[in-house]
Write a protein that binds this DNA or RNA. Structure first.
Lengths: 245, 245
DNA sequence: TACCGTAGAATTATCGACAGTCCTCGCCGG
DNA sequence: CCGGCGAGGACTGTCGATAATTCTACGGTA
């Protein structure tokens, strides 16, 4: 561990982008909401310039969509969007798992099992927030441990979108312990060095999550993840939903 | 195909980002070079505001790295960077291929084979630029045809980086026809619906390319892809190389 | 000769202000 | 009653100017 913080702080747009990412993931800025520049700038205590730069970052990530002369809006996760997100997540995490298997992986497995333990604890306490948090930390650890800059960066966006959906349609998981077991199985397969099993478990884990998120009461995510009946937590709202970026 | 162009033009930062991406891929702005705001703004005919927003997009993509109060620099592709890039590319393109196999794929295969034909033609004419162009169009078509927004967006960055390296150490391919054959084999395996074969060919294709890019004269890419002896095509240069984003 | 400190220049970071565009709402005519 | 029209307001897009920081070069000193 380094004894000193890096002398160069990260740039202001980067910091702001992080805050916005967090706010979007937590649902403080609901899906479909418009990001008013003046108001956000006031809230964050910065000028509109750096704020706009940060928002361009999130636009590039796909978390926001831009409509000229109208503004920037948080994406709304339709069923297709959720499907696409899980396609990308599967691609990234599978590649990460393979990378880990190629390199050393003892310590990674240990860290993952620690997080499984945390999940189990949260599941026993029926603390669904903590469970989701540990869940996401698990997947983040998996990808970060692979040591790939690009996979990590891609995954960061995908995790935000995941959290966004989990926040929106909170508590849709049927059995918390099933969730824990799936993660544990993946970690153990990793520890055994069984590449094929890891892939199989990972893919089915993603499929399960996708099923849970899209097959609820045959109206998809419209009720939970769409901004049309948004909760307006952030005090920002928008009338209609844009279509393209 | 749509009869009208979308009424809403894409935002200015998006346009500028595209131009910068192209310039970086083509090597007009060499690896390691600093992007001076004033000069670029003058060249592009815009103010520094929109330009900065565009550069933040590329920073988020990982094409630029930012150092506070110093400026933005084009990344230098070390051997590890190239390796990482191909890891990510493999992950994305493999997922795209699987998606295509799950959906219909006749027309996709046809388009890919067309591009293979173009490659063959370029190879016969020994036009290496056209060959590279068709090569990249092939991979772009593969991913775009999968219909995944996220995979496509991720891949866009990776293709820029690929072009960057190809531009830097131009003409490192031993036999152009081998290159064509590999692409043709992948397209044919796709057409046959043979998922396992597609994966195998795709992965080995990536490995081959990686070998060619990293194993040259045992000094890695330092001579071709590093900015230390940069060609300064863009007239922009920078002394030392930064380490982090 | 080598090192340290300092003044100058250049570049970035941030802010405030202006111009352009779109949406809203009320009014008028059919 | 309904549809078109226009003024007003709000927001984004863009630009120029100012403040802060860093790099460079030069001169002094041990």
């Amino acid at each position: 561990m380094p004894r000193f913080e890096p002398v160069v702080r990260e740039s202001t747009p980067s910091i702001i982008a992080g805050k916005l990412r967090k706010a979007i993931g937590l649902g403080h800025i609901p899906p479909g909401a418009q990001l008013g520049e003046a108001e956000l700038a006031r809230e964050l205590g910065v000028s509109r310039g750096p704020l706009r730069e940060a928002m361009q970052r999130l636009t590039q990530e796909g978390l926001l969509i831009s409509i000229r002369n109208r503004g920037l809006f948080v994406i709304t996760m339709t069923d297709d969007e959720v499907r696409d997100m899980y396609v990308a997540r599967t691609a990234v995490e599978r590649a990460a798992a393979e990378l880990i298997l190629q390199k050393g992986f003892e310590d990674v497995v240990a860290r993952l099992l620690d997080l499984v333990k945390a999940m189990k604890k949260a599941a026993d306490a029926e603390d669904l927030d903590a469970l989701s948090e540990a869940d996401m930390a698990y997947h983040e650890t998996l990808v970060v441990s692979a040591g790939s800059t690009r996979l990590t960066r891609m995954h960061q966006t995908l995790l935000t979108e995941t959290r966004m959906c989990l926040t929106a349609l909170e508590k849709k998981y049927p059995d918390p312990h099933t969730r824990v077991a799936e993660h544990q199985a993946i970690a153990e397969a990793l520890g055994a060095g069984n590449a094929e099993l890891v892939e199989e478990l990972l893919i089915s884990h993603m499929d399960d999550a996708l099923q849970r998120l899209t097959d609820n009461e045959n109206e998809g995510l419209a009720s939970g993840c769409d901004g049309n009946r948004s909760s307006r937590i952030g005090g920002i709202e928008s009338g209609k939903q844009p279509a393209t970026a």
